[in-house]
Every structure is written in C-alpha cells, then in structure tokens.
C-alpha cells in the first residue's frame, strides 16, 4: 500500500514536471501592438536595405550561384550540433514563404516561431532579429515579396536526438532569450543607437563573434569578443574596442565597404559574404556600426550598457 502511494506520488511528480515543461516550452505569440504594426503595408525600397543589414542572403541564397536574391535555401551550415539547412524564403507559394502573412513573418523573425507554431532552431538568428523594429520587419517582408520565386525545398536538418525535439527549443528560449527590446540608452546619440541596433539586431554580429556556452547560447558578458566559427574553420575575431585597438573608426568603415583591413589584407571566410552585404548599406550605417563597436569594452553586461 505504502509502495503504491509512493509510485503514485512519483507518477504525479513526473506528470507535473512534464506539464510544467510543456507549458514553459510553448511558442509565444506576437503582441497585439506589434501584430498591428507589421500588418501595415511595408516599403520594398527600404526593405532592400534591411535585407542587406540582416544578411539574409548569406544563409538563404541558393548555393552554387551568385545572385543574392535567389533565396531557395539549402546551403549546409555545419555546427557542433549537426547540419542545418536554411529553408527556401523566396516568394514561392509551395516551397517558399509566398503564402505567409506579415504576422507569420514577424513571428519567425521576432519570436523564432513558425506559422505552424513550431520553434525554429536558433541557428536562425532570431536571437538577434528579435530586436528588429516592426517597421523594418514589414519593409523587409515587402521587399522579399518582390524577389523571384524559387521552387524546391531544402533538405531537413541533420541533427541527433534529443535535438530533434523542436519543443525543447522553447525551454532554451526561456533560459537564454531576454526581452526583445534593447534597453534605453540615455546619454547616447542617435548614431550610437543606430549602430547598436544594426550590430545587435539585424546585423546579428554577435552570433559568430562571441563565445558560446555548452548549450550553444552566447556568453552574455563576452558578447562580440570573438569566438570559434560554427564550422570549426578558424575564428571570428574580437570586434570590441579591445580587439579593434589597432583599427580606427575609418578602418572599420573601410573594411565593411571594401573588405580591406588596415594591414592591406582582405577579409575572408564567412566575413567575405558579410562584406558583400555591408557594402550595399548607406555609408552612415557603416559609420554607425564602426562607432558602436569602438565604444564597446571587452567585458560587459547585456547589449546596451
């Protein structure tokens, strides 16, 4: 009898934990205010700039061809957790995002939640994109809709159990994703705020240029101080003021425009694709990024201090 009670109690605890885990891992929904804002018509011309600021093409462009606007997906991203294959985000109705609503798109970027209400893996950097403004989201969406539809789907991600359970990403988000908005920064000028927004939001610089913990989350206070590249081929350098101590602001601006460093080297690896994007940005954006990076001390708190 006592034994039966213990078993029952044990079962109750397991069920309670399971229920708690299930609720804690539930996908979130957009707030009514954000949903309303992203539903307003976007401007495709402005969205083109957001596209290059966010570097969508670096992961989503069809591999083996040079057009950044063919977004058929399928490039293999090798990581310590397995291989990810970024999906087709062209306006193809069947294989791409042609049937998506603006809310679907905002849910993906800002919450990492798919239209079918499943979690995306954080290889998709909504961890940074979540900081994007609703205006940028809807402009980007408008721009993507102007691009050619590409047929075909990317292969499924090749991950090992238990990473195959998408619901688990909900718990990961609980642990590692804070508020979407960047903190207030009184006393900082507009250029600094623009730079912070570009670096920490759409630009998602920290995704490569930071060390990660064992669960693959960025080590917050070491953001942007450099880290191993996910594919194991080399290192993304420290881009805080410490790592860039031999770089002037103009040097950073130049590197983001032409890819050439102050030593006359040309940036390579995944940064070469990044430079093709930053080269398309307004000059003031490159200046803002450079100014923000030069303002960062190597060891600090969450973005914004």
């Amino acid at each position: 009898m006592k034994k039966a009670l213990l078993v029952l109690a044990g079962l109750a605890i397991i069920v309670a934990l399971g229920a708690a885990g299930w609720f804690a891992s539930a996908p979130r929904s957009l707030s009514a205010i954000v949903a309303q804002e992203v539903d307003a018509p976007g401007e495709a011309a402005a969205g083109r700039i957001v596209f290059f600021a966010a570097g969508c093409d670096s992961c989503h462009m069809s591999p083996g061809q040079p057009d950044p606007f063919r977004l058929g997906g399928g490039l293999e991203l090798k990581t310590p957790f397995g291989s990810f294959y970024p999906p087709n985000i062209s306006p193809d109705v069947k294989d791409g995002i042609g049937a998506w609503s603006a809310d679907d798109f905002a849910g993906a970027l800002l919450l990492g939640v798919s239209p079918r209400r499943e979690h995306y893996y954080p290889a998709f950097p909504y961890t940074s994109y979540r900081r994007m403004t609703p205006v940028d989201v809807r402009d980007l969406f408008a721009f993507l809709r102007t691009l050619p539809a590409v047929a075909g789907r990317a292969p499924p991600h090749a991950l090992a159990f238990p990473l195959t359970i998408r619901r688990g990403v909900g718990l990961w988000k609980r642990l590692f994703l804070g508020a979407n908005a960047l903190p207030e920064a009184p006393g900082r000028d507009a250029a600094w705020k623009l730079g912070r927004y570009l670096v920490e939001g759409p630009g998602h610089c920290a995704e490569c240029h930071s060390p990660r913990n064992i669960l693959g989350a960025i080590v917050t206070h070491r953001r942007l101080t450099g880290g191993p590249l996910p594919d194991g081929k080399g290192k993304a350098p420290d881009i805080t003021a410490g790592g860039l101590k031999d770089w002037s602001k103009a040097d950073i601006v130049e590197a983001l425009a032409s890819g050439f460093t102050p030593t006359g080297d040309s940036l390579g690896g995944p940064m070469a694709a990044t430079v093709r994007n930053t080269a398309e940005l307004p000059a003031a954006y490159r200046e803002a990024i450079a100014g923000y990076l030069k303002s960062l001390t190597p060891d600090r708190g969450p973005p914004g201090d």
Partner: peptide, 20 residues
C-alpha cells in the same frame, strides 16, 4: 583596380581560415 582587388577576397573566402 577594384576589379583586380576582387581576386583577393575570392580565395580568402573559400580557402583561408584565420586562426587568430
């Protein structure tokens, strides 16, 4: 000149990984 310089990044993108 810019066309000549494009050659640098092309190889560095595919064939070089900076370790530091």
């Amino acid at each position: 000149m810019p066309g000549v310089l494009k050659n640098c990044g092309g190889c560095h993108e595919k064939y070089r990984a900076k370790k530091t």
